[in-house]
Write a protein that binds this DNA or RNA. Structure first.
Lengths: 243, 243
DNA sequence: CTAATAGTGTCTCTAAGACAGTATTCC
DNA sequence: GGAATACTGTCTTAGAGACACTATTAG
């Protein structure tokens, strides 16, 4: 089949076999106190009965970051993710049985996923607890190498919590230090000492900014917690180490 | 012009405009006590008078990592780099004026560059001090966005020195702790205390392995230094922090 | 001998972790 | 009042950095 591929000066067409480039996204959020990932179900073959990370082909005249932002909005209705960064590119031949596909994978972190069904596609989208998505069996079996991509993204997120302020991307503004601590506990899967956590966060200049206001205590009571805004820094120094 | 691009089932050809995928490499090494990068000169337009990072199109039926290994060997004759990892993918439209090119960038670290002219290409290759390569003017003006790629790679390398054992990739096996310290000093551009450095390295289990042997002192004299092999670990815990 | 490099000892300071104690709310 | 959550204080320990000191070589 003929296409409109133009062969530029100085390039031998046989040097670059047909390659499709996609941007796929691992959208992480915390719901019900558990780390969750956004998955979509694609009806058509060869996706039959399997789920996938949201994503799609890059358009002409858009950067990779723009493509990621576009896909994110198409899928979640979210205009801006507090965190959206490329983390790895996957290009094994045969990872997509139809043709050579090179996928630039992005990690997105959002505080809440609005209306999932607001996506422009008619595809079914769901927020899935990470443990179930990584299981590899049952309802949420992942297509292609998407299970590897998801695992890599979560490893990346766990590491970024130590050295960057990515945790603030999981919570709404303003937030309490308990909410911020719950982010670390959900992603790392381990409990942290509230007192020591507070001291570490507050002793890292620029991580969070006090508002002076306080939130109402929850239904269980307790002292009204102080509210904070995200800070301006992106790199934590000193880092917040895992035990 | 017609090509042999086949349109697979289920894909709309207009969804994936013609994209070429290349693997480009930032090959770092230390020579004359200074961090150096391998650059190649490409004669043909639009490279006229500018230098570039070594790299090329991916082949069918090879993984991205395999493409990187192949390019490295073509360019340096080195079969195996002690460190070779993908670090970022660049795909802005217009970054290559000829067509849409998505470049997966790799960071390679080698202890010594063998015969540079051993490359299969007839292109001229040179080891260039990083400071001159990053200057952006003079003899080694870089093509396209290669200056940005180089800067990102060096930032990455500086960060990896803190948390991984990448430093051992810069030195031959076996090595002395002074040689290892010179790696940190050259890449970070700052002097380190020899005594404290030794203690930190030896207190990180698995970073280096003592051989029991000693090297001859240099022409300036001094106590014969102990020789070490690279260790088995890849992640430094605790990390080796920069001041 | 001196100069240079390799390696050790020791002191101070900072940050992490354990954990007890205080403050303020809901029920 | 008791239970729960939000803080604060204090003690111990580990690691980083400064820097003095010892060991072994070349010239």
């Amino acid at each position: 089949m003929a296409t409109n591929v133009r062969i530029p000066v100085g390039y031998d067409p046989r040097s670059f076999p047909p390659v499709a480039v996609t941007v796929d996204m691992v959208v992480l959020t915390i719901a019900d106190g558990v780390l969750q990932v956004l998955l979509v179900e694609r009806g058509a073959e060869p996706f039959e009965g399997s789920w996938a990370l949201p994503g799609g082909f890059i358009h002409e005249d858009e950067t990779l970051d723009d493509a990621a932002r576009r896909e994110l909005e198409e899928e979640t209705g979210t205009q801006v993710a507090p965190y959206l960064q490329q983390f790895h590119t996957y290009g094994d031949p045969g990872r997509d049985p139809r043709m050579r596909v090179v996928t630039v994978a992005y990690l997105a972190v959002v505080p809440t996923v609005g209306d999932i069904s607001a996506g422009t596609d008619a595809r079914l989208a769901e927020l899935v607890p990470l443990t179930r998505a990584l299981k590899g069996t049952g309802r949420y079996r992942l297509a292609f190498d998407h299970r590897v991509i998801l695992r890599d993204a979560v490893d990346q997120a766990r590491a970024l919590l130590e050295t960057t302020s990515i945790a603030t991307a999981f919570v709404d503004d303003p937030f309490t230090l308990s909410e911020l601590r719950h982010v670390y506990e959900a992603v790392w899967g381990q409990a942290l000492d509230p007192g020591n956590f507070r001291r570490k966060v507050l002793s890292t200049p620029g991580f969070v900014v006090a508002t002076g206001r306080h939130a109402r205590p929850g239904p269980e009571g307790g002292k009204p917690p102080e509210l904070f805004h995200p800070g301006t820094i992106t790199r934590l120094d000193p880092a917040l180490h895992r035990a």
